[in-house]
């Protein structure tokens, strides 16, 4: 329409096209799903008002449902006494793995060894559960737990009776550590490797040893991301459901000592749902607890992701400095 001499038209505003709709809907889907999950749990959980209370009295199925009490302290305590020690172990192991990968091992060797760590992430939760229940529990029950009990019994919490089955808090910590390790290890490894090679070389050029480069350069540079990795690992450990349920003994009481049976928040969610089908306020209470866990998980993950930022694509970056 415009003659060759007329000034160029301003670029047209992008026109609406039907072809744009599916991609936009797909892009909106993660947000929609997240909102859908929150709304669904809220609808399912809030029909009877707020049911949960912060006591140790979890007693859902009395003859009269209106007399039921939904004290969640037992599960909250159980979740923290397993997830926190697991977090400490996971963080220490991840730092060691990261240091070995970034500074000490040749690339080929570290690729192979890290492959095993990544493989830990692939084992299904329920497989950890059955392995822990039948294979590892006896080792804990007959050897490890009694040994700790005998030699460190003077430490508060480590004395007292030890169940001989091996089911209980230590086994849950062990399984959680294995399950949360791969994620944290990958993130820590990548944050250490993301420290520019120039900084390691600057340290080495001042006569620092590799360990000093790790302590004084890599750690301070990667501190924030390592914190994020730890937080995400903690979220993983807090949310782990099936395997922990299978190895912790599911006792609705506060643990007597470190070796006792316990119960976790996700554990009660997965373990008692069947029993709650027929009792509406019980079901609603579980949905509320699910909402609490969801909120926790969201907060931890938002915080963790924020700290970690976006580390590059997966895989092992090439450390120049050996």
């Amino acid at each position: 329409m415009s003659s060759p001499l007329s000034p160029p038209e301003p670029p047209a505003r992008p026109r609406f096209r039907w072809a744009q709709v599916p991609p936009l809907l797909a892009a909106a889907f993660p947000v929609a799903l997240l909102i859908g999950i929150v709304v669904t749990l809220a609808v399912a959980g809030l029909g009877f008002g707020w049911l949960l209370n912060p006591s140790v009295n979890w007693n859902p199925s009395t003859g009269d449902p209106s007399q039921a009490s939904f004290g969640i302290l037992v599960f909250v305590v159980g979740s923290f006494v397993t997830a926190l020690p697991a977090l400490v172990l996971v963080l220490l192991l991840s730092l060691a793995i990261g240091a070995a990968t970034a500074l000490y091992l040749p690339r080929r060797v570290s690729l192979l060894l890290n492959g095993f760590v990544d493989l830990l992430a692939g084992i299904p939760s329920v497989v950890y559960g059955i392995w822990g229940f039948w294979i590892v529990a006896p080792v804990f029950g007959t050897t490890l737990n009694p040994w700790i009990n005998t030699h460190l019994g003077f430490v508060p919490g480590l004395g007292g009776p030890v169940p001989s089955t091996g089911i209980g808090i230590p086994l849950a910590i062990f399984v959680l550590t294995l399950m949360a390790l791969p994620l944290t290890a990958v993130l820590v490894r990548e944050s250490l490797l993301a420290v520019p090679v120039a900084y390691r070389e600057a340290g080495l050029a001042l006569g620092a040893t590799r360990y000093e480069v790790f302590r004084r350069i890599l750690l301070p540079f990667a501190r924030r991301r390592i914190g994020g990795a730890a937080l995400l690992g903690f979220g993983r450990a807090l949310g782990e459901t099936v395997a922990v349920f299978m190895v912790i003994g599911d006792a609705t009481k506060l643990p007597f000592n470190f070796f006792d049976l316990s119960f976790t928040v996700p554990g009660v969610l997965v373990g008692q749902f069947d029993s709650a089908f027929i009792q509406p306020n019980y079901l609603a209470a579980l949905a509320q607890l699910g909402l609490v866990l969801l909120a926790f998980s969201l907060v931890i993950n938002v915080g963790g992701r924020w700290l970690v930022g976006r580390v590059g694509r997966g895989g092992i970056a090439m450390p120049e400095a050996a």
Partner: peptide, 27 residues
């Protein structure tokens, strides 16, 4: 490491560490 303490090196781009000026110089 001992060689590098007697033969120092500075690189193409500044590589200051995320610390104070003093701590950098004292590294």
């Amino acid at each position: 490491a001992l060689v590098r303490r007697r033969i120092g090196m500075v690189f193409q781009r500044p590589t200051v560490f995320p610390q104070s000026i003093f701590e950098n110089a004292a590294f």
